[in-house]
Design a protein around this nucleic acid. Structure first.
Lengths: 336, 336
DNA sequence: AATTCTTGCTTCATCGATTGAGCAAGCTAG
DNA sequence: CTAGCTTGCTCAATCGATGAAGCAAGAATT
């Protein structure tokens, strides 16, 4: 191997010296516009060969500093621990690359301070556009981006200052609730009011889903029990604790539950197992989100799958069209 | 809002002009070493205030170009669609940030060409170190990094040219196999040889797990049926197809299966559901990997949870110690 | 009073790639 | 034979942040 460069990384100046030419010729050849710059194909070949031999890698920092556009696109995402965000991230990377963009993604654990810090860091890296997925405080992020002249978009949770692409939570929740009620009727012979658990009462998705939940009850002429609406947060333990508290209060539990995310569902199932008082044969569940194992092993747990490809297509459509006025685009989820 | 900068992003030169001082004073103040550079605290305060007002964000490209170290650490990862890689990525980001490093992560879908391209891009971004997680061809990546004077480490799958941190696949698989066999005995009253499904025969993890699988059979004095070892790849559909093929050949199926990943398990369970010939009450399953829903709903599916925090601690230990000789560190998985 | 020290800055080269401007040699047209 | 064009390159400024070196003014020391 003759491409050992133990000390420093190879630069276009090194290549220029080896090829007996100038750095600007090397640059032109390596970034592909040598035709435009009237470099002979012989010299181009020679430079390419030497670059290959030396294992040359562009210094992106230098390149980006000089260029006007970075072609970097950023995304912040709350967690990687469920299929919904996992597939968002995976597809986002793919679609970004297809469009010649370099995706950088970071996980902010639903922590508003981390969100801001991550957004600031992304601005430092000169992102051209920032997608805030499920952000706790999307508008603060948008303000920050706007101040730096960078576009931002909201995904999953809407904001008031930038375009937002979200699921149609109301319609999805209404249909999911309807199905859970039907299942209750079929399997248990009773159509009681359901329990709602998971999510944050303050976030748009949760409140829209609660609205759909109420609407579906109204559709059947059923009341909603107010103390059976438990927007206790997203972590599994929070769902477990909320159910414990309710049981302690001596409240009769519902026959069916609307669970607001797979993460909350984890807590719910753990609670069912632990409490021993209810078998899942006595209890009908539905979950606003999808997981392959729940859907295969969950014994009739109804699931709503959010339309990730649909949402991301909308996102890139807006990026490409340059839209920046704050409108909310709702994508219908897939009912399985 | 007086920080409108519609045209261009604010630079230290803009701040310097506004503060009536020089760019280097601004730089010194903003990156915190103004004491060392003997800037008065009055000027420092003034600059800080102006920077705040203007919503200044560092141009990382310019900063990194100048500095010797980038503090960027890269990771490539095959997929985001299971808990194992999800938790690796999430914890990696956390641990990197704790150490003042900026993590960049990209998903390469088990595609060797994408792996190389991603690695090259990361080198362009001046990563100080690259972690190749579950890479198809880790040694090519290591060679490329070495050529650029960048350290690399392998995680999950080992390579011959760089340090590797992996699970103790042999011991884990042996124990998992033992448990599946015991479960067969207990639940079905028979201790037949098991079927092995999932993974790539060519990868180290799969072959070590097959070795552990064989060893556990030998421990019980059981034979292993060679055509029941199906290293058919990782995708769910591949597992489904492999089981179809086996069934077509008219082979009697085993009472129990060792499934090599949650992704393969998805296919296996789908096949069981679809084929209808076997109920999961007639079949004992175990899976080398962990998923919360399988563990809660899987009705006795035995799981091995790889020790992600343990592995990542080892990884950062090696990064910090500067180790670069190719040794394989095995971390015992957690038996649940 | 002359020298040295300290304080608080500024100047300028530098990192590596990009690109407008320019230049020399060869070719063509008049 | 000379003005003008084409070809194939090189030069040098530039992007924004950094930090070594330097400089001026005041304080302390001899």
């Amino acid at each position: 191997m003759n491409h050992v460069k133990q000390s420093k990384r190879t630069t276009i100046y090194d290549l220029a010296e080896l090829a007996g030419t100038s750095a600007s010729a090397v640059s032109a050849v390596l970034n592909g516009n040598w035709k435009k710059r009237r470099i002979s194909s012989q010299l181009a070949d020679k430079i390419m060969k030497i670059a290959e031999e030396q294992g040359y890698a562009l210094n992106m920092q230098a390149s980006l500093l000089r260029r006007e556009k970075s072609h970097i696109i950023g995304m912040i995402v709350p967690k990687y621990d469920n299929r919904y965000f996992g597939s968002i991230v995976e597809l986002f990377e793919d679609m970004a690359r297809e469009r010649g963009l370099f995706p950088i993604i970071t996980c902010t654990r639903r922590d508003p301070e981390l969100e801001m810090e991550a957004a600031r860091t992304m601005l430092s890296y000169q992102v051209e556009c920032l997608i805030a997925t499920g952000a706790t405080d999307p508008d603060r992020i948008t303000e920050m981006c706007t101040g730096a002249g960078v576009r931002s978009l909201n995904l999953d949770l809407p904001g008031a200052l930038a375009p937002s692409v979200i699921s149609d939570n109301f319609a999805g929740a209404r249909e999911l609730t309807r199905r859970i009620l039907m299942n209750c009727d079929e399997r248990l012979g009773k159509k009681g009011p359901l329990l709602f658990i998971g999510g944050r009462g303050s976030d748009h998705n949760t409140s829209e889903r609660i609205r759909g939940f109420r609407q579906a009850h109204a559709d059947f002429g059923l009341p909603v029990e107010e103390d059976h609406i438990l927007a206790c947060g997203y972590a599994p333990e929070k769902a477990e604790r909320a159910l414990d508290d309710l049981a302690l209060k001596g409240n009769a539990l519902a026959y069916g539950m609307f669970v607001n995310s797979t993460i909350s569902l984890e807590g719910v199932i753990r609670w069912i197992r632990r409490s021993g008082r209810l078998d899942d044969r006595d209890l009908v569940l539905g979950c606003f989100d999808w997981d392959p194992f729940v859907s295969l092993l969950g014994n009739g747990i109804e699931m709503v799958r959010q339309n990730v490809p649909g949402m991301l297509h909308k996102v890139f459509e807006m990026i490409e069209s340059g839209a920046s006025k704050p409108e909310v685009i709702q994508v219908p989820p897939l009912m399985l």
